[in-house]
């Protein structure tokens, strides 16, 4: 009756709402946790002590050098055809503008193809991307390499429509990447509303002029840490089931959904197992990653350090797509392992969430999955996720403690049973 006991404790018992309450305390105390910030440093310190206080084993920090970028003051003002102060959020790793800002005419494009076609018009201008939202992975390319593509055709800055299917005038930040052989230009996200408005203005032949000011600065890499805590296995302690989320966030909102929820249901999994007095056969290892938002920096460091033991990893799990009402478990692995995961998910029939879907993945576990380790991620109701993601709206208010309880129950049952089976999950 172990699965039933986990569900009972997480959803109906004493532990209900615990992961939500713990997350509330952290995000209200520390706020958002940008890579390289004092906030992230404080969050790591608090979490380290909390995991120790929770009587977890082998609690330790693993050093990682992470990027340190600060946005500073920023503004984008439309000067022509009318005065309009636009909401703007600089993109991670962007350079700043000169203190007087960059004032330039705008070229609005709807795609990279259109930018290439209209390349001769782009020189000296601010390129505004008004790309439609298709899905996250496709549309995010504009945010990631919008500045590089604009700079290639001589633009002086780029403003990118926020990557979201819905907006109430909310800019959404995220990481962008420069290319070595292309000049670096400042780049930021604007709202869907402003991108669409400028697109309409441009289609009417109206000249648009914007003054963009960004105080963004890149500093040398700084020290940070992945946090590790365990329940050591009783029979095969050297073998590992890894359960994880990332502790860093962007510097807006509270970083509650991305990825406070994932980090805290992962902690909750170990807490619930500890509360029930269980000890699986192999080690259940919690990792709270640092600097995921900058491109999985902490996860890369962890992989480099631990890949020598890759044959001992039965399953790697990451929750980084919200902890709203779960729809199932995404899984990548061999057919045999998938059949086993389906059996395990049947244990969740009391919650009526038993689906095993394809494409288990996560920025922080992908290296392991690519190397052949079975991987799982939590799939939940994503309807709201990208409305709030990377914006000032990413706060605890969006979250629901009852949904988090269910997410934690699933996360715990899966991680515990895989850790306690007599054999590791079979690989291809």
């Amino acid at each position: 009756d172990i699965a039933k006991a986990i569900i009972e404790l997480a959803v109906y018992g004493k532990a209900q709402n615990r992961s939500y309450d713990r997350l509330a305390l952290l995000v209200d105390t520390v706020g958002p946790r940008l890579s390289g910030s004092k906030n992230l440093e404080m969050a790591i310190r608090i979490m380290y002590q909390s995991l120790k206080d929770n009587d977890l084993e082998n609690v330790h920090l693993e050093l990682v050098k992470i990027p340190h970028w600060e946005r500073g003051e920023e503004s984008a003002v439309m000067l022509k055809p009318r005065f309009h102060e636009m909401a703007v959020l600089g993109l991670g790793s962007s350079i700043g503008t000169p203190s007087e800002g960059i004032t330039a005419e705008v070229l609005v494009v709807n795609s990279f193809d259109e930018l290439r076609r209209r390349a001769p018009e782009a020189k000296g201008k601010i390129v505004v991307y008004n790309q439609p939202y298709l899905n996250y992975s496709r549309t995010v390319q504009y945010r990631f390499r919008g500045a590089v593509e604009a700079a290639k055709v001589g633009a002086v800055a780029s403003l990118i429509r926020s990557v979201t299917p819905f907006s109430i005038y909310s800019p959404h930040t995220g990481i962008q990447k420069y290319q070595d052989d292309v000049p670096k230009i400042p780049t930021a996200c604007i709202t869907v509303e402003d991108a669409e408005m400028m697109s309409r203005m441009a289609s009417r032949g109206v000249k648009i002029v914007i003054r963009l000011k960004m105080g963004a600065r890149n500093y040398p890499d700084t020290d940070s840490f992945n946090i590790v805590a365990e329940i050591t296995g009783r029979k095969y302690p050297e073998q590992v089931v890894l359960v994880s989320g990332h502790l860093d966030s962007w510097d807006v909102g509270q970083g509650a959904i991305d990825d406070g929820g994932g980090a805290f249901i992962s902690w909750e999994a170990l807490s619930l197992i500890r509360d029930l007095g269980l000890r699986p056969k192999r080690t259940l290892r919690l990792v709270l990653w640092t600097a995921e938002e900058q491109g999985g920096i902490g996860a890369f460091q962890y992989y480099e350090l631990h890949k020598v033991n890759i044959s001992n990893y039965s399953l790697v799990m990451e929750s980084d797509a919200g902890t709203f009402l779960p729809t199932g478990l995404q899984f990548t692995g061999s057919d045999k392992a998938r059949a086993i995961m389906k059996e395990i998910m049947n244990l969740l029939q009391p919650l009526n969430i038993t689906q095993v879907l394809n494409h288990g993945e996560g920025e922080d576990i992908n290296l392991w999955i690519q190397a052949g380790v079975p991987g799982a991620s939590l799939l939940d109701n994503l309807y709201k996720y990208f409305f709030f993601h990377h914006s000032h709206g990413d706060t605890l208010t969006v979250m629901d403690p009852k949904q988090m309880n269910i997410a934690a129950a699933i996360w715990t049952v899966v991680s515990y049973v895989v850790a306690d089976l007599e054999e590791m999950l079979p690989r291809s």
């Binding site: 009756d1 172990i2 699965a3 039933k4 095969y236 073998q239 044959s311 001992n312 990893y313 039965s314 045999k336 059949a339 086993i340 059996e343 395990i344 049947n346 244990l347 029939q349 049952v413 515990y416 049973v417 306690d420 089976l421 007599e422 054999e423 590791m424 079979p426 690989r427």
Partner: peptide, 24 residues
């Protein structure tokens, strides 16, 4: 020990099924 090094599942799926059912 059931390490991945052997790469193959020593138990039949039916046995694993039964083992998993014992958690339910």
């Amino acid at each position: 020990q059931a390490t991945y090094k052997n790469a193959t599942c020593q138990k039949t799926f039916q046995k694993i099924q039964k083992e998993i059912a014992s958690y339910g």
